[in-house]
Structures are given as C-alpha cells and as structure tokens.
Simulated assay, not measured.
Amino acid sequence: MSDKRAADWDKKLTPSTLKSASKNKKTTVMKPAKIIKTAIHALFAVPCALFLWVVYFTVGVTEALVCGVLQTIWSIVLFGISLVCVIGILVWLLTL
C-alpha cells in the first residue's frame, strides 16, 4: 500500500472521523404507526391483486368463448356462401 493511501486509511479510522460520520448518517426509525400502515397496505394489496386476477381471467375466458362462438358462426356463414356459389356455378354450367 502506498504511503498516501495508508495515511488516508489511518485518517478514516480516527475516532473524530467516526463520530462525524455517525452524525452525518441519516437513519430513519420505523414508527409503529408506519409499520401498521405498511402492514395494512400489504394486507389490502393481496386481495386486490387476487380480485384483479379473477376479473382478468374471467374476461379472458369470456372473450375466448365469444370469439370461439363467433368464429364458428362465421365459418358456417362462409361455408353457406361457398356452397351457394358452387351450386350456382353447377346450375349455370348445366343450363348452358
């Protein structure tokens, strides 16, 4: 270790520097009211998150069912249109 670094290290460990460092340190003490408030927030956060998940899941399932039903209906409609077109082409060909 260089002499300068050794001198800085010794300087850092003097009682006066330790005392001034402890004075400058900003520590916050958790007050009981703040602890209780934080615990209440945590207790309310879990049911809220669970409720939001249930709503999100229900909406997703409903959307999937509605989209599935609409897709089925739309495929039946398209099949009917295709069938009418094929029958129309066959009738047109037979009447030539």
Rank of each mutant, 00 (worst) to 15 (best):
Leu90Thr: 06
Leu18Trp: 11
Gln71Pro: 01
Trp74Phe: 01
Lys19Asp: 00
Trp74Gln: 06
Leu18Gly: 06
Phe51Ile: 02
Arg5Lys: 14
Asp8Ile: 00
Val46Asn: 14
Pro15Gln: 14
Phe57Met: 05
Val66Gly: 01
Phe44Ala: 06
Val61Ser: 04
Thr27Val: 06
Lys37Ala: 07
Val69Met: 15
Ser16Asn: 06
Leu78Met: 13
Ser2Leu: 11
His41Met: 14
Leu43Ile: 12
Leu90Asp: 06
Ala21Phe: 05
Ile89Trp: 12
Ala39Ile: 04
Trp74His: 07
Ile89Pro: 07
Glu63Phe: 07
Lys34Ser: 03
Ser2Arg: 11
Trp74Thr: 00
Thr58Trp: 02
Thr38Gly: 08
Val69Glu: 11
Ser75Tyr: 14
Phe51Lys: 02
Ile35Ser: 07
Val54Trp: 05
Asp3Asn: 10
Glu63Leu: 06
His41Glu: 15
Ile87Phe: 10
Tyr56Ile: 12
Val54Lys: 04
Val91Lys: 08
Ser20Gln: 08
Gly60Ala: 01
Asp8Lys: 11
Thr28Asn: 01
Cys67Gln: 11
Leu90Val: 14
Leu93Tyr: 04
Val59Ile: 07
Ile89His: 06
Ala33Pro: 02
Tyr56Asn: 02
Phe79Val: 10
Ile87Leu: 15
His41Ile: 13
Val86Thr: 04
Ala45Pro: 01
Trp74Asp: 10
Leu43Gly: 01
Thr38Met: 08
Ala6Thr: 15
Ile73Cys: 12
Phe57Cys: 08
His41Phe: 12
Asp10Gly: 15
Glu63Pro: 05
Ile87Val: 07
Arg5Tyr: 09
Lys11Cys: 02
Asp10Glu: 12
Leu78Tyr: 09
Ala45Ser: 10
Leu65Trp: 03
Asp10Tyr: 14
Cys48Glu: 04
Cys48Lys: 09
Met30Ser: 11
Met30Arg: 04
Lys12Met: 09
Cys67Ala: 09
Ile40Gln: 10
Val77Lys: 12
Asp8His: 01
Cys67Val: 15
Lys31Thr: 03
Val69Trp: 13
Ala7Leu: 13
Val29Leu: 10
Pro15Met: 13
Trp74Arg: 12
Ile73Asn: 10
Leu90Asn: 12
Val59Trp: 05
Lys31Arg: 11
Lys26Trp: 00
Phe57Gly: 05
Val59Gln: 06
Trp92Arg: 03
Gly60Asp: 04
Ser22Asn: 03
Lys34Thr: 02
Glu63Thr: 11
Asp10Trp: 15
Lys11Phe: 04
Ile73Ser: 07
Val61Gly: 07
Trp92Asp: 02
Leu52Lys: 04
Gly68Ala: 09
Phe44Tyr: 00
Leu83Ser: 05
Phe57Asn: 04
Leu96Trp: 05
Ala49Phe: 05
Ala6Leu: 14
Ile81Thr: 15
Pro15Asn: 09
Ala64Asn: 02
Pro15Ala: 14
Ala33Thr: 08
Ile76Ala: 08
Tyr56Gly: 07
Asp10Ala: 15
Val55Asp: 02
Arg5Asp: 00
His41Tyr: 12
Lys31Pro: 00
Ile73Tyr: 12
Gln71Gly: 12
